[in-house]
Amino acid sequence: MKIVATNKKAYHDFEIIEKFEAGIVLEGSEVKAIRAGKVNLKDSFIKIVKGEPFIFGMHISHLKTANPHFKPDEKRPRKLLLHKKEINKLIGKTSEKGYTIVPLKLYFNNKNLVKLEIALAKGKTLHDKRESLKRKILDREAKAALKDY
């Protein structure tokens, strides 16, 4: 498994409840651009439109070596491929208040297919963000103290 892009902001802003693996519908040279690492997940989000999940805001840059006459839109919505049971589960959970779907990482699996790890998440409050930051700092200091000891 080769990880191409991660969404670190999602771990900071959301509490991850459940993770899913989804395929993506891509066009043209987008797979080559992803392989070259020209992808950004930072401000992307997932919505379910008419019973089908789509990722919005994922930026895949165009390669200079690819065909210049066929340039797919870099920020277009891309359809995600999930099982019907998973989609129904996500629809049920996101209809509740406070739950959302966020992308976590983009990677190539063992069969060399592009996969997106998405998560059902609940937004953190400012207090929760501060608490997790304090816990992270304390853990880091404890590890450093053990290392010096």
Results as ranks from 00 to 15, higher is better:
Ile3Thr: 14
Ile3Trp: 03
Ile3Gln: 06
Ala5Met: 01
Lys8Glu: 15
Lys9Glu: 07
Ala10Asp: 05
His12Asp: 11
His12Ala: 08
Phe14Val: 01
Glu15Gly: 01
Ile16Tyr: 06
Glu18Asp: 06
Lys19Tyr: 02
Ala22Gly: 07
Gly23Tyr: 05
Ile24Pro: 11
Glu27Ser: 08
Glu27Pro: 00
Gly28Trp: 09
Gly28Ser: 14
Ser29Leu: 03
Ser29Tyr: 14
Glu30Val: 09
Lys32Tyr: 05
Lys32Phe: 04
Ile34Pro: 03
Ala36Arg: 15
Val39Asn: 11
Asn40Ala: 07
Asn40Asp: 14
Leu41Phe: 05
Ser44Arg: 08
Ser44Gln: 08
Phe45His: 15
Ile46Gln: 09
Lys47Pro: 01
Ile48Val: 13
Val49Gly: 05
Val49Ala: 10
Lys50Ala: 13
Gly51Phe: 07
Glu52Ser: 08
Glu52Trp: 02
Ile55Met: 09
Phe56Glu: 10
Phe56Lys: 09
Ile60Val: 15
Ser61Leu: 10
Thr65Tyr: 11
Thr65His: 12
Thr65Ser: 15
Asn67Ile: 07
Asn67Asp: 15
Pro68Phe: 13
Pro68Asn: 13
His69Met: 11
Lys71Gln: 14
Lys71Thr: 12
Lys71Tyr: 03
Pro72Ala: 06
Glu74Leu: 01
Glu74Val: 02
Lys75Ala: 03
Lys75Thr: 09
Lys75Cys: 03
Lys75Phe: 02
Arg76Glu: 10
Pro77Lys: 04
Arg78Gly: 11
Arg78Tyr: 12
Leu81Thr: 13
His83Gly: 13
Lys85Pro: 00
Lys85Met: 10
Ile87Gln: 11
Asn88Pro: 00
Asn88Gln: 09
Leu90Ser: 10
Ile91Pro: 01
Gly92Cys: 02
Gly92Ile: 03
Lys93Pro: 01
Thr94Arg: 06
Ser95Arg: 14
Ser95Leu: 12
Lys97Tyr: 14
Gly98Gln: 13
Thr100Val: 14
Val102Thr: 14
Lys105Pro: 00
Asn109Phe: 07
Asn112Arg: 11
Lys115Asp: 06
Glu117Tyr: 09
Ala119Phe: 00
Ala119Tyr: 01
Leu120Ser: 09
Leu120Trp: 09
Gly123Ala: 15
Thr125Asp: 11
Thr125Val: 03
Leu126Phe: 01
Asp128Gln: 15
Lys129Val: 03
Lys129Tyr: 02
Lys129Glu: 05
Ser132Ala: 09
Leu133His: 05
Ile137Ser: 07
Asp139Arg: 14
Arg140Val: 02
Ala144Gln: 07
Ala145Gly: 01
Leu146Glu: 12
